[in-house]
Design a binder for these strands. Structure first.
Lengths: 241, 241
DNA sequence: CGTGACTTTGAGGAATTTCAAACAATGTGG
DNA sequence: CCACATTGTTTGAAATTCCTCAAAGTCACG
């Protein structure tokens, strides 16, 4: 972990409004003004994590900060007393993370890849948001965006079998163009099978078998560390029947 | 469905801050001023649903409103193309509901019991929140509260077997004193077994068998429509091992 | 008192987990 | 640059949980 300088240009918040402000195609990121970005960047400490699996914070620790991912991939997870791990979300650039309850982090966060994080002290950020209603509205929009996504995941966990969960997950990942080549339909998964299993509420073995099943049925092809997707067929599995 | 007059006194928002504003015991509801309550009540239309199972809105319908439950119990659920239903949340008085995406409701909502709902037109509410940063902060706090709860449910669905899911659910319900007598440990469940099954991602039969299992193991006793809980034993099952 | 909605029980079958082990990829020190 | 250790992935077989189908029991209400 190391503090570095960074330009406000890459500060962004990934969220779409549920109720669009104006109609038409909805941008995947909030429209922040240059001034807002600069101010936010000034408030934050920028932290670079140089390796995979770096701890960003631990559940139960005093929670004085809000985190915004600038670059890389992060996992938020919760450990149960028996050692089981449930990954609650993978975070991509533009995502906020680090929910608290009673001033303690509810979950832990670790890098999946080397990452860069903006870290905001809560009191300073709150004060700033109170003074900037437009930005605070942006944070509200982001929270509702995350709520929608978490609810969607709840549907997946409640009603899909493992192969279908995996298909839904792969389609989600393919929404992040840094790791997906839409021309060749080639997905480079940044996380390993254990991560996927702990995210989808199952075991590594079941994930591996589901990959096998989807491959046998022609919905994807494993190619070393990469996966060639057949998006139409995957969607048919996820959304039909 | 009927529109009725109602006093702003019962308008409340159920949420605890993750990062308490001041230290000490955290109130279970946001501290709204009388003026804020009155203003909000003035903005809203009050709708009374006189029977169980009344549709409040349907997924896919144009989403012009935010809903705030004043009285009763409501379920938010999502229907899959094959007719399966996943209940995403039960709402209690003080809960906001009705998430949208692209101006359409993502989920449906129905009353579980006769209920009273404040309905806010989105443009008017947004304008009002923009002009009242303190209230908008309250809505942000509420959204993060709901996000925490949804994540907790994700842990339950991802890592708990059915009996443990049920135990966790019953403990959640016992947090609502309208339906729980803490002296006698007597819980009056407002929803039926189908609702519980569709919330916990399982079948009615499994719910029934889990009730049987928990009863046999002495964690609860079924008494007609009510359930006598042994909270300590239920917590031991949910939080240990 | 009958009817429909809700709940419980039983039995067989399917999906998934668990345990074990082999296999593949990756990185490190000699 | 290779040998070896480590991490990550896949496969097999047995055990378990849960689902599905079927049916009986229970409750509330007109």
């Amino acid at each position: 972990m190391r503090r570095i300088a960074r330009s406000p240009a890459d500060l962004k918040i990934r969220a779409v409004r549920g109720w669009p402000a104006r109609h038409g195609a909805e941008a995947p990121h909030l429209a922040l003004t240059a001034a807002e970005r600069a101010e936010l960047a000034r408030l934050a400490e920028v932290i670079e994590y140089r390796s995979r699996g770096s701890q960003i914070f631990l559940q139960g620790a005093p929670a004085g900060f809000i985190h915004l991912l600038a670059e890389g991939v992060v996992r938020s997870y919760h450990m149960l007393p028996n050692g089981e791990r449930q990954i609650l979300a993978f975070h991509w650039p533009g995502d906020l993370f680090g929910l608290a309850e009673n001033d303690r982090f509810v979950n832990s966060a670790e890098t999946v890849l080397p990452s860069v994080v903006y870290r905001f002290a809560v009191p300073r950020l709150s004060a700033f948001l109170r003074a900037n209603p437009a930005l605070q509205e942006g944070f509200l929009v982001k929270a509702m965006h995350d709520l929608r996504n978490t609810q969607r995941q709840l549907i997946v966990m409640g009603r899909f079998d493992i192969a279908r969960r995996l298909a839904a997950f792969l389609l989600d990942c393919s929404g992040h163009e840094t790791y997906y080549n839409p021309g060749k339909h080639l997905l480079t998964l940044p996380m390993n099978r254990y991560d996927i299993a702990d995210y989808l509420g199952t075991s590594v073995e079941s994930i591996s078998r589901s990959f096998g099943r989807l491959e046998k049925d022609g919905l994807l092809r494993r190619q070393g560390a990469e996966v060639e997707l057949k998006p139409a067929k995957l969607k048919a599995l996820v959304y039909r029947t």
